[in-house]
């Protein structure tokens, strides 16, 4: 399976450059800051409330993490090497997506230190922490699929990052604005809202509809990425 070949190369690219380490360090620094701030102020050893701030932090990191995925390929002309080989576009898109997912998962693994601390000083609800992690993983993957899509649109990394940041901010803003509307617009926003299903995971629920929602959202953006690449090349 060529996805594996692409995946290995991309992952290598992340960890052989300082980029992944800097972004992971930034993520753990900010989550650590919010975590310690919460514990010190409330004197209450809990983590799941702090975890609701993680998507906001990752919203800034995801565009930077994904911006190079297709832009660099275009800049160095290596997409010609890849697509003149017996490889399908879907395999390439999946390989790249999985590699960036691993970088994100690695950042989340680092946050387990917070969980360990909470366990040492208190008696937290393991189930709620678990579901909050699932929610973060699914929401994070959705962000990354948006970033991957944006990187297929431009050959300039900065522009790609701005596009994906803009899209993510859009999804965030409509989530905030949904209460302004009533009736059908409110319903529509509720349906497409990226953050609405996240609240359930936060409160210890895993609902099938939320899982399906995030997987579909990610799938749609991966599909759009494949379409963009195909329209540029294989047409």
């Amino acid at each position: 399976m060529k996805t594996w070949v692409i995946f290995k190369r991309e992952l290598r690219g992340y960890f052989y450059s300082p980029q992944a380490y800097i972004l992971m360090g930034f993520f753990i620094l900010l989550t650590g800051f919010f975590f310690s701030d919460y514990i010190i102020n409330t004197r209450y050893p809990s983590i799941q409330y702090v975890m609701s701030s993680w998507p906001m932090i990752f919203l800034f990191i995801a565009p930077i993490l994904t911006m190079k995925l297709f832009t660099e390929e275009r800049k160095y002309g290596t997409e010609k090497l890849v697509f003149s080989s017996p490889v399908s576009v879907t395999e390439v898109v999946l390989g790249k997506f999985f590699s960036v997912c691993v970088v994100y998962l690695a950042s989340l693994i680092l946050t387990l230190t917070h969980v360990i601390i909470v366990f040492i000083i208190g008696n937290p609800d393991l189930g709620r922490i678990f579901t909050a992690y699932i929610g973060n993983i699914l929401l994070g993957f959705s962000f990354l699929s948006v970033g991957l899509f944006a990187s297929s649109l431009s050959e300039n990394q900065i522009i790609a990052a701005i596009i994906s940041f803009g899209l993510l901010i859009f999804f965030w803003v409509i989530d905030i604005l949904q209460d302004i509307f009533t009736g059908i617009p409110h319903k529509i926003i509720q349906i497409i809202s990226l953050f609405e299903p996240y609240a359930g995971f936060q409160n210890g629920f895993i609902s099938l509809s939320s899982v399906v929602y995030y997987i579909s959202f990610t799938g749609i953006f991966l599909f759009l990425t494949v379409r963009v690449i195909k329209s540029r090349w294989l047409q």
């Binding site: 190369r9 690219g13 160095y76 002309g77 997409e79 010609k80 890849v82 003149s84 017996p86």
Partner: peptide, 20 residues
């Protein structure tokens, strides 16, 4: 896929990943 196995292509700008 089958046909591409018989082709080696060198584009005008050599397709090289600088970090490898």
């Amino acid at each position: 896929k089958k046909a591409k196995r018989h082709i080696g292509y060198l584009p005008e700008i050599p397709p090289l990943y600088p970090d490898m």
